[in-house]
């Protein structure tokens, strides 16, 4: 894992996220979805909501197979805004040539963190008639980029002539995907491929995640891979129910759905058509406040689990929520690199 480090702290990439994690800080990452347009202003606005509230921010790559500004393009703007991006890269839209070429460019532009994903199938996106690629998969992508960094070779085996890209290499983990008993071993496979960190799917069922982590510790994986638990605020009881039912690998306990419903109880007596716009606004605010409260509590409980190195806060199209969540969970202010070096 420390093959060819570039700094004394054993950092492979020099990324801020990596250095904080190696210094033992409980890391906070967040997510920024690029716009479905060329609007750089959207990215700047989101970046200003996230600056100082997290250590690095994931820039999604055509998430859910909907065309958006590219992760590397948006990442360049984010970098200029003073935030450290985590470039997401899926295997759905690019073959091994395109991925390597894009990563050379990303590194040259200053990106240091990479998240290797298989990618959602295009059928639910906005171009369902597209041809997908899947030349390589996420595990092979991890292998490819770690070999570029540690062995200084392209996927074909040819050696680099000039400087190689040195990414802090991440991947996703789905603790509750099927088959559940295999999931810790799948993390072991990603560790064997050379992954440095993982961000998990959203965790709402802490005991179930605890069982996953127990197995992960038994396999010693928490010592080889930094594990960032995925968390996110619920927006409404409807969203909670929808996610519980429709998103693969996501467990939302009834108790949390009930709490969300309860938060809107004051408006529950009236039929929807009798609610004034002000009522609806107040109800949405009450739901959101409860969603943030639940998220803060989840972080508190997840932090207690041995082997969890940080949290990945996914507040999709609700970036405003990240700061109050991090604040509420006692994770602000974020440490500086000087503090990381001193500790």
């Amino acid at each position: 894992m420390t093959a060819n480090p570039i700094s004394e702290d054993g950092s492979l990439s020099g990324s801020r996220l990596e250095r904080l994690l190696r210094a033992g800080h409980f890391a906070v990452t967040a997510e920024l979805g690029p716009p479905q347009s060329t609007d750089a202003g959207v990215i700047r606005a989101k970046a200003s909501l996230l600056r100082g509230a997290c250590d690095a921010v994931n820039i999604t790559d055509n998430q859910t197979a909907i065309v958006r500004m590219s992760s590397i393009g948006a990442g360049t703007i984010v970098l200029a805004e003073g935030l450290e991006p985590v470039i997401q890269m899926t295997c759905r839209d690019r073959n091994r040539l395109a991925i390597q070429a894009d990563l050379l460019g990303a590194y040259a532009l200053g990106m240091r963190n990479l998240l290797c994903l298989t990618g959602d199938h295009q059928q639910f996106g906005n171009h369902p008639t597209a041809k997908n690629v899947f030349d390589i998969d996420s595990v092979q992508l991890v292998q490819m980029v770690t070999a570029m960094r540690d062995d200084r070779v392209f996927q074909c085996g040819e050696a680099f002539d000039g400087p190689e890209p040195r990414f802090f290499v991440g991947a996703a983990a789905a603790p509750f995907g099927g088959p559940v008993e295999y999931r810790p071993y799948r993390l072991a496979k990603k560790a064997a491929a050379g992954v440095n960190f993982v961000q998990t799917q959203l965790i709402y069922d802490v005991p179930a995640f605890g069982r996953y982590m127990a197995k992960v510790r038994e396999l010693g994986l928490h010592e080889r891979v930094f594990i960032l638990a995925g968390v996110g605020p619920l927006k409404s009881p409807g969203m909670a129910r929808y996610m519980a039912k429709n998103v693969p690998g996501l467990l939302v306990p009834d108790e949390l759905i009930d709490r969300m419903t309860e938060a809107g109880a004051a408006w529950a007596g009236k039929p929807a058509e009798e609610l004034t716009p002000q009522d609806k606004k107040a109800r949405a605010a009450a739901w959101k406040a409860e969603g943030i409260r639940i998220c803060v509590e989840l972080i508190g409980r997840i932090r207690e689990i041995e082997g969890v190195a940080g949290v990945h806060i996914m507040a999709i199209e609700w970036e405003e929520a990240v700061r109050p969540i991090a604040e509420g969970a006692g994770l602000l202010p974020r440490p500086t690199l000087e503090e990381a070096a001193a500790s």
């Binding site: 759905r92 298989t118 990618g119 998969d137 996420s138 995907g177 099927g178 088959p179 690998g249």
Partner: peptide
């Protein structure tokens, strides 16, 4: 659906 050699992906649920 993705011709993966290192599956299952995160989208696999309940078989």
């Amino acid at each position: 659906a993705k011709s993966l050699l290192n599956g299952p992906c995160g989208g696999s649920e309940a078989g």
